[in-house]
Design a binder for these strands. Structure first.
Length: 511
RNA sequence: GGCCCGUUCGUCUAGUGGACUAGGACACCGCCCUCUCAAGGCGGAGAUCACGGGUUCGAAUCCCGUACGGGCUACCA
């Protein structure tokens, strides 16, 4: 449903709001709050991109908060991996566990005292009450309520316990949780979602949720609200799986006597089958894309486009353009399906945009990693690498494709069976190779133009098609039917090796 | 069950009542270029705007309903 009354988001740099008749400048503060239970995945990265872009667009602060309250699955390695992935993507944060900041600590496990403080405040204000129901009882009640239909939340039994009695039971050591006393008389909880417009929830449908467990730890909604409040977050930009949590968090803010932030809910990212994106759909972590040879700018661009558009026409959007143009108003409400092919195309666009120098910088680590080049050789072969760069960069979409494309330049490769059959087995192949070998041995200066000058006349002289002659040569020299341009390849291979390979291939060629 | 969200070419999207014979991009098909593969150029196919009602001179755009998909409904996050 389209909502034409979507609220204004803040103007770039800052926004001015009325506070007690006084104009104050509100500094934008957003946060990305991943749970270190795994690597940074595509969906989380997209949320991070939007938060980052929004902060940068408005000259605000981007906070990184680690939600590590699940001790079973949270690890420090994952935290570090998430940090690395964000750095690689270029999503720099202003405050976080690694860089600190005025509103720390930035790991939930280190913020226990803040939740305790908040609980005290809630008690003082009478916004919370102890609940002595056991998990088993609750389970039973839930099932009964479910069977009756309608509201399935807590039946508020303990809300009716007189204060003195509750106090006595607490002091006697009876296990209890703390529940939010939802103000039934309050009326609907309404907020203006910056992406979806007005969102309205009947107060009667909101549970007296547990804010602090019997072991004293805060529940998710409580921790989030307290964190966002104490970190002075102004805009909460997150997945739409949190829409239903929002009214609960707003109620917590209100119970604390605080002004809730603005909210913007992003649609989910799905796999090609319309299901939640998961490993089944292939690579889902940012790290995996780095390893596959994707450029950070390409992934950033693609992620930005997954639910946001600049103008509906522009698709190639670099970091600066994104920052200069990002707005929540242009975020779409529909879930988006992750399209690996479009990402790959975009990556190719950025690869082709690189200068030879930039490409060499990317290519060298790949070659070294593949064992084709030694790091010590790089300086000496710089000119050669610079000449190779444009030949390769125009033909690949991922950096990891480099290896297969240039291997023949670094080591002798066997001639591919299919290539031999399709090309060398054709009549005339041997004649072509012999003629080429002869023509090439006479080349004075071993460079592509001279090589081309020597080879160009061959087809006509031999009465063959150009393609037949050059493909035979290509297969002899590169081992396959697909390679960078022939004349340049010969130049880079060098005279000795080129002639040797042609000679070696001659016995395999048909007359 | 209750509450909430979503639905425009295969995919990402443009669209905010008349400029819509619904635009762009990826993918697909054809032609051109060409030593292969790419890249590039030109062209093509592809969307009854989920469905049904209404409002209006006029609706992809506003209203209501239905269907389908999704989320929340935990002492998970």
């Amino acid at each position: 449903m389209r909502d034409r009354h979507r609220p204004r988001e803040v103007a770039p740099e800052s926004s001015t709001t009325e506070h007690g008749g006084m104009s104050v400048t509100e500094h934008v503060r957003v946060r990305f709050a991943p749970s270190p239970t795994g690597h940074l995945h595509i969906g989380g990265a997209r949320t991070a991109v939007y938060n980052w872009a929004f902060a940068r667009r408005h000259g605000g602060t981007f906070v990184l908060r680690i939600e590590d309250t699940d001790p079973e699955r949270s690890t420090e390695e994952n935290t570090q991996a998430i940090l690395r992935a964000m750095e690689w993507l270029g999503l720099d944060h202003d405050e976080g566990p690694d860089v600190g900041g005025p509103y720390g600590p930035y790991r939930q496990t280190e913020r226990a005292h803040l939740y305790a403080d908040a609980l005290e405040r809630l008690k003082e204000r009478g916004s919370v009450y102890p609940c002595f129901c056991t998990p088993e009882e609750l389970e039973r009640k839930r099932e009964e309520a479910r069977a009756r239909g309608g509201f399935a939340g807590y039946d508020r039994t303990c809300r009716l316990i007189p204060q003195e009695e509750a106090q006595r039971r607490i002091e006697s050591g009876e296990p209890h949780t703390w529940r939010l006393k939802v103000p039934l008389e309050r009326g609907d909880v309404v907020f203006d979602d910056l992406v979806r417009g007005e969102m309205r929830f009947p107060i009667s449908a909101i549970d007296d949720l547990i804010v602090v467990r019997s072991d004293g730890t805060p529940t998710y909604n409580f921790a989030v609200a307290v964190d966002d409040a104490t970190m002075r977050i102004t805009h909460v930009i997150r997945g739409d799986d949190h829409i239903s949590n929002t009214p609960k968090q707003i109620l917590i803010y209100e119970a604390l006597g605080l002004e809730p932030p603005e909210f913007a809910h992003l649609s989910m990212i799905w796999g090609p089958d319309g299901k939640r994106l998961s490993k089944r759909h292939g690579a889902t972590s940012v790290e995996a894309y780095r390893e596959m040879g994707y450029l950070p700018v390409a992934l950033l661009n693609y992620l930005a486009l997954l639910g946001w558009s600049l103008d509906g026409e522009t698709t190639v959007i670099d970091r600066d353009t994104l920052v200069a143009n990002f707005s929540l108003e242009r975020v779409s409400r529909n879930p988006a399906i992750f399209d690996a092919e479009k990402l790959e195309w975009l990556n190719g666009v950025y690869i082709r945009q690189m200068s030879a120098e930039e490409f060499v910088e990317r290519m060298v680590p790949v070659l070294v990693e593949a064992g084709l080049l030694r790091a010590e050789e790089v300086a000496a072969r710089r000119e050669w690498l610079l000449a190779l760069a444009p030949l390769v960069s125009e033909r690949i979409k991922r950096l990891d494709e480099i290896v297969a494309m240039v291997r023949f330049l670094f080591e002798d490769v066997a001639i591919d069976d299919r290539a031999r059959e399709a090309v060398l087995a054709k009549p005339g192949a041997a004649t072509a190779l012999a003629a080429a070998r002869e023509a090439l041995s006479g080349v004075a200066s071993w460079d592509a133009p001279s090589i081309e000058a020597a080879l160009r006349p061959l087809p006509e002289r031999l009465g063959m098609k150009p393609k037949a002659v050059f493909q035979a040569l290509r297969v002899a020299v590169t081992g396959t039917t697909v390679s960078p341009p022939l004349f340049e390849s010969l130049e880079l291979l060098g005279r000795e090796r080129s002639l040797a390979r042609i000679e070696a291939a001659q016995p395999l060629a048909a007359e």
